[in-house]
Amino acid sequence: MTTEPEEIDSTPVVARDTPASRHDVWAVIADGWTYSQWVVGNSRMRAVDADWPQPGTSIHHSVGVWPLLLNDSTVVESCTPERELVLIANGRPFGKARITLRLRDLDGGGCRIEMAEIPVSPPLNWLPKQLALTAAFPRNRETTWRLAAMAERRTHDDR
């Protein structure tokens, strides 16, 4: 059983409903090479650990727009397949953030994607948690939209 990060139970948490199943959404998440396609701000993938998304594994990506790119990495803190993924993302020079993605079945099919992100190291963790959640909300709203769209295409392509 995973420990529930408190930020996912705080507000505002981005919630996106999709007709795609938890399985289809998880398939996108579990393919680390797709990370730069659905996570806002990531421009390219450089490497994905073979056991991604097992706890302790990493993806290595670049953030920004060429020629202003920073090479960064994101590490899995905890993982419950098809249910929850908790990541620690490096966000140089702003510090690290904990990102929680949770998937829930919807009555009648499909799933809800929930996402929260809070800074966990200086300097941004000096902000009040509510302010940090609010600041990340627009980025996470777009990220969950992209994730849902990719899962829906996967579902549609499988028909």
Rank of each mutant, 00 (worst) to 15 (best):
V13M: 13
V14S: 07
R16K: 15
D17I: 03
D17M: 04
T18N: 08
T18V: 09
T18E: 05
T18C: 08
P19D: 09
P19K: 14
S21H: 09
S21A: 14
H23F: 06
H23L: 05
H23P: 00
D24E: 15
W26M: 05
A27M: 04
V28D: 00
I29V: 15
A30K: 12
D31T: 15
D31C: 05
W33K: 12
W33Q: 11
W33M: 02
T34M: 00
T34W: 00
T34C: 00
T34G: 00
S36V: 00
S36N: 08
W38S: 07
V39S: 11
V40Y: 08
S43Q: 11
R44Q: 13
A47L: 04
D49W: 06
D49G: 07
A50F: 01
A50Y: 02
A50C: 00
D51G: 06
W52M: 04
W52H: 09
P53Q: 06
P53K: 09
Q54E: 13
Q54F: 01
G56F: 04
T57M: 04
T57W: 03
S58T: 04
S58C: 12
H60I: 03
H61K: 07
S62V: 02
G64P: 04
W66Q: 03
W66R: 09
W66T: 03
L68N: 10
